[in-house]
């Protein structure tokens, strides 16, 4: 017998977690955000239950501000794999014209956090997988793999259930739910190496390409459609850029890069001197903003 590789250990742990949820939780769903972590999580779910299809649906919270390429990718993958993909948008937010340019943090709250809570309530899901990793952010580093939420979807970081060995407590009362993070122990580097090892398809935005962008407050923002407001003096330029994380295009900063292959991306990730969250415009608020959002029900 041999020692399993680091990636084999992480894969086995994630599969064990998914099977526990499928066996013990009443109505699970897997959040799908179209990004690389979601792609890895989806890939693991297909492996965990093979030859069976994953015994739960997938859910995408669509803010209507995602990159066009993301939505195309989502629809193509859903079709190709034959999985059940639920798409939910907060229609009240749309009616009120909530957008990332004018509404700042209210936008994230209404179109992401509120939308997620509405969707979970609508379908009555009791357990939801998310692709969060502990190396992303300090409050995530503190969160359990099975993270309990009360009936208001609130996370109470001061009173988390102890989580020992592989013994996950999935008991809940009516209305309560559990968020499950099977990629908790993966790092950004692990994700990329696994994508290469398993040949997982990802949205092309991760690869460097000439794209129309503007420079704004130290971020490189892609002009993905005509809804993008240009500030006085801003010029659309064509630059070779790629994205380390993907979200709503006006809130996602790209990086100038030549990395147009997986190997080049991994090389660049290993050399990186900043964390990937720097490209998320919404995380740049004061210390603890992620924790506050999580307490309100954000993933």
């Amino acid at each position: 017998m041999r020692e399993l590789t680091h990636l084999e250990q992480l894969e086995a742990e994630a599969i064990y977690i998914m099977r526990e949820v499928a066996a013990e939780c009443e109505k699970p769903v897997m959040l799908y955000s179209i990004g690389k972590d979601s792609s890895v999580m989806l890939h693991l779910a297909l492996k965990a239950f093979y030859p069976e299809k994953p015994p739960f649906p997938f859910l995408h919270i669509d803010t209507t501000w995602k990159f066009k390429e993301m939505i195309e990718f989502r629809d193509r993958i859903t079709e190709k794999l034959g999985i059940e993909m639920l798409v939910y948008t907060n229609e009240d937010g749309i009616k009120e014209g909530i957008n990332p340019f004018d509404h700042g943090s209210a936008y994230t709250d209404i179109m992401k956090t509120q939308a997620l809570r509405q969707a979970l309530d609508k379908y009555g899901f009791t357990a939801a997988f998310g692709g969060g990793r502990r190396d992303e952010e300090k409050s995530r580093a503190k969160e359990r793999i099975f993270s309990f939420r009360n009936a208001q979807h609130t996370w109470d970081p001061k009173n988390q259930r102890p989580e020992m060995w592989k013994l996950y407590n999935t008991k809940i009362h009516k209305g309560e739910s559990i968020r499950i993070f099977p990629l908790s122990n993966w790092t950004e580097k692990d994700i990329w190496q696994y994508i290469r090892q398993e040949n997982i398809e990802i949205v092309p935005l991760y690869y460097a390409m000439e794209r129309p962008v503007v420079y704004r407050d130290g971020n490189i923002i892609m002009v993905d459609d005509t809804r993008m407001h240009l500030e006085p003096g801003e010029q659309v330029e064509w630059k070779k850029v790629r994205f380390r994380t993907l979200g709503c295009y006006p809130l996602t900063g790209g990086i100038e890069s030549e990395a147009d292959t997986l190997d080049a991306i991994i090389e660049e990730t290993l050399q990186a001197v900043t964390s990937e969250r720097t490209s998320r415009v919404i995380d740049h608020e004061e210390a603890g903003s992620m924790e506050r959002r999580k307490k309100e029900g954000y993933f």
């Binding site: 680091h6 502990r134 190396d135 952010e137 300090k138 409050s139 995530r140 580093a141 503190k142 970081p157 001061k158 988390q160 908790s184 122990n185 790092t187 580097k189 210390a287 603890g288 924790e291 506050r292």
Partner: peptide, 27 residues
């Protein structure tokens, strides 16, 4: 490491934090 708001305010560690690092010899 003390990533929770309460921890930073009180200057104590309340819950376990996980960190991931790799040296030339080991992860």
């Amino acid at each position: 490491l003390d990533g929770l708001l309460d921890e930073r305010e009180q200057g104590i560690t309340i819950d376990v934090a996980y960190r991931y690092f790799t040296t030339e010899k080991r992860s």
